[in-house]
Nucleic acid binder design. Structure first.
Length: 785
DNA sequence: GCCCGTTGTCATCGC
DNA sequence: ACGCGATGACAACGG
């Protein structure tokens, strides 16, 4: 019967979906076709060309949409999908051993069927239930309200049994498939064990439709897209396909405004179908599949489970078990009563409400917020490509929906990437019906993974771009979106050093051409000894003469390029600034700087030749500095260089040696003042330049670091998401496989898997779990306080 | 001749 | 109070 029902219901659902799609103007063929590529990618590896298609269809294909709904191969398809997913997950996922241990006792035949075509409610993977990373918080919230539909398999929620899944058993897709109906020996053993352990605990079976959830997530995405602009897919379509999207609305009771669990709304599959058709929000795909939903509060359960899982995940993965127990306990959410648990879900803020009800640890509360962001993550990933690499799109044409998403989501990027989210990834998605984020969440594992990969690629591209200086508008956009931290408007163009380069290049072009050594060293050099070293030789203080020019030339040569070497950007700087060397107004000896003198700046070039060859006095005078001329005219007995560069003491001694008139003394003091001021000015300018260059360099480094960190973050997020998805699927899988002593599945609304600190997994009544969780929660709260 | 960069100088501030 | 460095502003100079 179950099989028949499943297939039949599936067919109906499929049919309705198709109709809705058609009505929506959606090109079904294309849609289906599009789904294919993802599969290829999964198998053969992602193709850039398909990336976009992935966006829309991966989930669907993964969920089995690509397969004809009535196809007998659905089971096979599902099994294949699982295998693929698992294989894929092997690379990335770092699932704690506990997760693995939780593996399913046996598999529901029904689940398989449902999974293929639509998210069959039975299918374990249904997102609606708890662990959806993909699901945006909103989606989760929705589920809270309506999501229960997914969980539908209320098999009457047999209470009595608690089942424990031994750690060892790891899911083997193949086995599952094979085992659909019949319990394997292992399964039986496991059940026995679980039973023994948990007999006291009533067990209901929750059914998580992973596929449906995914679909929902897709629907959400689509909704986002639609919201964004393209509403190509009518709600009916969504309803048919994805209920999650709809869920957002569904959760909220139109009349009361409260979110109402779907199960409540849709006791019977048929009813749900109607609802879906009529009310997009209410039902998830899973519902239709579900023959009956005796249990009123599937969503709540799902959320609770989700939260539980999330808490576990957080504890184990994120926090490394430190608080595992508390969280676990807390994880069991309370709202067993939830029947109408609607209240929980319905509560204005799904997150908060759910959190509170479920008694999740405070951390989880926080996380939920995070989760919202996370939920958006997929979108982010999606966004990334669009944002950063619209061009990347192999096809060159992003589907409008995608574009919309990206555009819409782009605004959200900050939130999505919000640092807070890591934990949130695990947190159940909020029930809120809102927005884009949800849509993104809906991505199924394969789909999400693909997106993530693409995202990473994008990130890498971004990183490159950033390293290159974020020249690209995209990069800048990213920055802006990611963080508006720096008010600096550094030129995003080209290479980080570009500004400096440009500047330097210009100057260099002008000045450097002639002089090889023209590097203007740090002003420090100027202050440095050069003058002093020269001074002794200059002692003679030939006031007149060509020396000034010579000195200039020498100064240029003297500059020490090595210092600039430290600053890469400076390498290109060829400014003639002779900040380093003090002017030697008069050099008795040129010999001081024989070699160096050869190097001249552009300006000095002209003079030097003449001066070197034969410095005619007039010529020299002509080019001599005013102070030099004045000194000559005043017959100052020593060089301006000495006047300027001698230490105060020596300078005073020098003055004392020579009996000078007041005008001479005044002139000497002026010369000294001006000379020092000149060097100071040079140093000042040099400092300015260096400061600018350093700032540019710093900006570049920061950008690069930022890009790197962003990339790392995305990688972590991806890993987390994958783990979360894995856990979710495992949870659903396990839970769906569990049977009470009567062989009936546990009601998701009544029972939840509880993770023990030792890695054991117990099936506990939610009420009991909630009680247990409350205490720890309080403790945690207290701690936080 | 104008523009722009460089350099020198002055005035001022602060140490 | 003085010396000195730093710096903004201005002008001269040269490409």
């Amino acid at each position: 019967m179950l099989y028949l029902k499943k297939y039949f219901t599936e067919g109906l659902i499929q049919f309705t979906i198709l109709l809705s799609l058609i009505g929506v103007r959606v090109d079904v063929d294309s849609y289906l076709n599009n789904q294919l590529p993802p599969l290829r990618e999964i198998i053969l590896g992602p193709t850039s060309a398909y990336t976009q298609t992935q966006f829309h269809n991966l989930r669907n294909t993964l969920d089995g949409y690509g397969i004809h709904p009535k196809s007998v191969d659905l089971d096979h398809f599902f099994a294949t999908r699982r295998l693929l997913n698992q294989v894929r997950s092997l690379d990335h996922l770092q699932v704690p051993s506990t997760e693995v241990s939780a593996w399913l006792v046996h598999r529901d035949p029904e689940t398989v069927v449902s999974a293929a075509g639509q998210s069959s409610p039975s299918i374990t993977l249904d997102n609606g239930g708890g662990l959806e990373d993909v699901n945006s918080p909103e989606a989760s919230t929705m589920r809270g309200g309506s999501g229960t539909s997914e969980s539908t398999y209320s098999q009457g929620g047999e209470n009595s049994l608690g089942a424990v899944a031994p750690e060892d058993s790891q899911e083997q897709p193949g086995e599952r498939d094979n085992n659909n109906d019949d319990l394997t020996k292992e399964d039986i053993d496991l059940i026995d064990i679980l039973w023994r352990q948990d007999i006291d605990l009533g067990a209901g079976r929750e059914v998580f439709n992973y596929s449906s959830r995914q679909k929902e997530s897709e629907a959400e995405k689509r909704n986002e897209d639609e919201k964004d602009g393209g509403e190509e897919r009518p709600e009916s379509w969504r309803n048919g396909l994805n209920l999650e999207e709809d869920q957002p609305p569904a959760p909220v009771d139109g009349e009361t405004g409260e979110s109402i669990p779907e199960q409540l709304q849709n006791p019977v599959v048929t009813s749900e179908l109607r609802d879906t058709s009529e009310e997009a929000p209410s039902t998830s795909q899973g519902l239709p599949l579900l023959p009956v939903r005796p249990q009123p509060e599937p969503q709540l359960d799902l959320e609770q489970q989700w939260q539980d899982i999330m808490a576990i995940m957080e504890l184990q993965d994120m926090e490394v078990n430190s608080t595992a127990e508390g969280s676990l306990d807390s994880s069991h959410a309370t709202d067993s009563g939830g029947g109408t648990g609607s209240s929980s879900s319905s509560g204005g803020t799904p997150e908060s409400s759910t959190m509170g009800e479920f008694g999740l640890s405070r951390s989880t509360l926080i996380n939920q917020d995070v989760s919202l962001h996370q939920a958006s993550l997929p979108s982010c990933s999606q966004d990334f490509p669009t944002l950063f690499n619209p061009d990347l799109d192999p096809n060159g044409t992003l589907r409008p929906a995608l574009l919309r998403l990206s555009s819409s989501n782009s605004s959200n990027i900050n939130s999505t990437y919000g640092a807070t989210n890591l934990t949130g990834l695990f947190a159940p998605p909020p029930l809120n019906s809102t927005t884009n984020l949800t849509s993104t969440h809906t991505l199924t594992d394969p789909f999400s993974s693909l997106l993530e990969e693409s995202m990473l690629d994008e990130i890498s591209l971004l990183d490159l771009a950033m390293e290159e200086g974020f020249s690209q508008a995209q990069a800048s956009q990213l920055e802006d979106e990611l963080d508006s931290d720096s008010g600096l408007s550094l030129d995003s163009s080209h290479s980080p050093a570009s500004p400096s380069n440009s500047e330097t290049s210009c100057s260099s072009a002008a000045s450097s051409s002639s002089t090889s050594a023209t590097f203007s060293e740090e002003g420090a050099v100027g202050y440095s000894t050069d003058s002093e070293a020269a001074s002794p030789e200059m002692e003679e203080g030939a006031v007149g003469g060509y020396q000034p020019e010579y000195s200039k030339l020498c100064r240029m040569s003297y500059q020490d390029p090595s210092q600039f070497g430290s600053l890469p950007e400076l390498d290109n700087v060829n400014h003639n600034h002779t900040y380093n060397l003090p002017l030697a107004s008069s050099y008795p000896d040129h010999s001081q700087l024989p070699g160096s003198c050869g190097k001249k700046t552009g300006r000095d070039k002209s003079l030097p030749h003449q001066s070197k060859l034969q410095p005619p006095r007039e010529f020299l005078d002509k080019h001599a500095s005013r102070d030099e001329r004045r000194a000559r005219s005043m017959k100052i007995p020593f060089s301006n260089e000495k006047i300027i560069n001698l230490p105060v003491e020596e300078f005073n001694e020098l003055l004392a040696k020579h009996h000078l008139s007041e005008p001479q003394l005044a002139l000497i003091r002026d010369i000294r003042r001006r000379g020092k001021n000149k060097m100071a000015a040079q140093n000042c300018r040099k400092r300015k330049l260096d400061t600018i260059l350093n700032l540019e360099h710093g900006v570049h480094d920061l950008r690069r670091d930022k890009a790197r960190l962003l990339k790392e973050k995305m990688e972590f997020l991806r890993s987390i998401r994958q783990m979360k998805q894995k856990v979710q699927s495992l949870y659903q899988e396990v839970f769906s496989q569990l049977r009470d002593e009567h062989g009936r599945p546990y009601s998701a609304s009544d029972y939840a898997l509880q993770y023990g600190p030792d890695g054991s997994v117990l099936v506990m009544p939610r009420s009991l779990a909630a009680e247990q969780s409350r205490k720890p929660d309080k403790k945690q709260k207290d701690k936080k306080k």
